[in-house]
Each structure stands twice: as C-alpha cells, then as structure tokens.
Design a protein around this nucleic acid. Structure first.
Lengths: 83, 83
DNA sequence: CGTGTAAGGAATTCTGACACG
DNA sequence: CGTGTAAGGAATTCTGACACG
C-alpha cells in the first residue's frame, strides 16, 4: 500500500506521535508525503511504517542526520555497483 | 485493508465520484464510514471497493434499494442456516 | 537537536435545504 | 430517485516563529 491517502491526523492516531514530530521528520528529509492541490500532506501506509521505524531508532539514540545516512546506505545496497 | 483512514476527498479522487454521490450511498445504508471526534468521515480501501461496485451496479440500472437487498443476501449466504 | 505552543490564515468537510424530474 | 449547488459553520491542517536547552 504505497498510495498516499492519509492526512496527518490519521497518521498521528496510528503512530501515537504528534503532528510536530511527523512534520519534523519530513523537514529532515526522512519521509516524503505528497500534497493536495491545497497543500495538505498525504501519507501512505509505508510512510507510517517509516515513521514508526524512525521514532524507534531515535529512542535508541540516533539523531535525524544519522538516520538519513542509514537510509542512504540502505538505498546503496539496492543499487548496482560499478567499479 | 479495512482500517478507516481516508477522508472523502481522497475517496473522490480514487473513485472519480463526487462527495454528494458518496454521502448519498451512506444515506442509503450501502456504506458505513467511521467518524472522527469532529464528525469527519473516514473510509477504508474496502469502502472504496464497495463504492465502485455500487456505482457499477447503478450504471447497470439497479437502484439503491435493490443494492441494499443484494447486500443482505450476500450476508445471508455467509451466515449459518437454522431450520 | 527535537519538540511544545500560540497565532492567524487557508483548505477541507459537514449539514440541511432547494432544485430538477 | 439520484445528484447538483449555494450557504454558513465547524474541524482540520498549514506555515513561520519563539521557546527551551
């Protein structure tokens, strides 16, 4: 389910986090919700999963910069390597 | 995906129908969205599927009353029969 | 750094009604 | 019967900023 269909309020309910926290993860480029024509955020279930993982990692002591690096290396692992 | 997470605007986009049509199906007891504390409707992906089926049937000439009967018999088929 | 909050505005949704047919 | 619409209000969400630390 990668379709972006949820407003931030629903994501708050599903994750137990605040709007502030969720918007901050976006500010730090950790999640990428879509926008309606009016500018409202729309999240997917995958986004919700990401948000929960991010929050988990942060409670373990990681900061948002480190999480961004982790995400980068995740992507690199999935892309072909040329030498 | 039976979690009720979508606002009516998203359902309009997914189905191509108007808010009026979607609310009318609810008025006729064909779909059952949840409500936020504030009173806003929340739909699931199953609701979206139902809405599309309802719209399809209506274009084939059924009215909402007949569709309600169809739904009843569907449920009856799934419940045990006692004689 | 990560999050709370008050502020003001804008987008979204709600209901009940009138209309057509 | 099924749907469009204008009306007025209410719930939801948005941004930028100040605060603490």
């Amino acid at each position: 389910m990668e379709s972006k269909v949820m407003s931030i309020g629903v994501v708050c309910e599903l994750t137990g986090l605040t709007e502030r926290q969720i918007r901050y993860y976006e500010e730090r480029k950790l999640i990428f919700p879509e926008r309606t024509k009016g500018g409202n955020r729309r999240y997917s279930f995958e986004d919700v999963k990401s948000i929960q993982e991010i929050h988990q990692k942060m409670q373990e002591g990681f900061n948002t910069f480190e999480l961004k690096e982790l995400n980068k290396s995740k992507k690199q692992r999935c892309t072909p390597i040329f030498r």
